[in-house]
Simulated scan of single mutants.
Amino acid sequence: MAADLNHTVVHASDRTASAHFLAGILGLEVGAPLGPFLPVDTGNGVTLDFYAADGPIASQHYAFLVPDEEFDTMIGRLEAAGVTYYADPHHTEPGRTNSLFGGRGAYFEDPDGHNMEIITRPYARPA
């Protein structure tokens, strides 16, 4: 039996701002509200449900596999928005991208400090 991730909740101090930020960087659309959630659908059928949480937001990591031909456009959107991107998950190499697994990748923070990642090749796992 296979199990596919269908949706996940992304806690945000402002669900509208956070959903529109990520959708704008990735070139996605923000859907109509569904109860307390503001959905952003990804290309593989997973929905990110942005939820306005009270109190401090614990930083999470979200990685997005993106087409290589759209990577530079996404980096340009980050630059246009004044968002620093990094080659590494610890954010020690600002303004740089990585070339892990023969692809390209970058990390950046969303408005609530979630560590977002865009990659053009999936991580290779040992067989």
Rank of each mutant, 00 (worst) to 15 (best):
T47K: 13
A2G: 11
N115Q: 01
A23W: 06
D68F: 04
H91M: 15
A2P: 15
F71V: 01
L65G: 09
M1H: 14
T42F: 09
G76A: 14
H90I: 14
P126C: 05
M116R: 09
G43P: 06
S18K: 00
T73N: 12
A81I: 12
H7C: 08
T92R: 14
G102A: 03
A58L: 04
Y85E: 06
L38H: 01
T92N: 14
D110W: 05
L38P: 03
I75R: 07
S18Y: 00
T97G: 06
H7F: 15
E29P: 01
D54K: 13
P67K: 02
T120C: 08
P111W: 10
T73K: 10
P122R: 10
E79M: 11
D49H: 02
G82N: 09
A87W: 09
A53I: 02
F71A: 07
L78R: 13
G31T: 04
H7K: 12
G95F: 09
P56M: 12
A3D: 15
A2M: 13
Y86R: 05
M74E: 01
P94G: 14
P36F: 06
G43D: 09
A52R: 09
G76K: 08
T42K: 06
E69D: 15
L5V: 05
G95M: 07
S59P: 11
A53V: 10
V9F: 00
A12S: 08
I57P: 13
D54I: 05
F21I: 04
G43H: 07
P111Q: 13
P94E: 06
A63V: 03
G35H: 06
G76Q: 14
P56W: 08
A80D: 14
A17G: 00
D41E: 12
D88Q: 03
D72T: 13
A106H: 05
I118Q: 02
G103P: 06
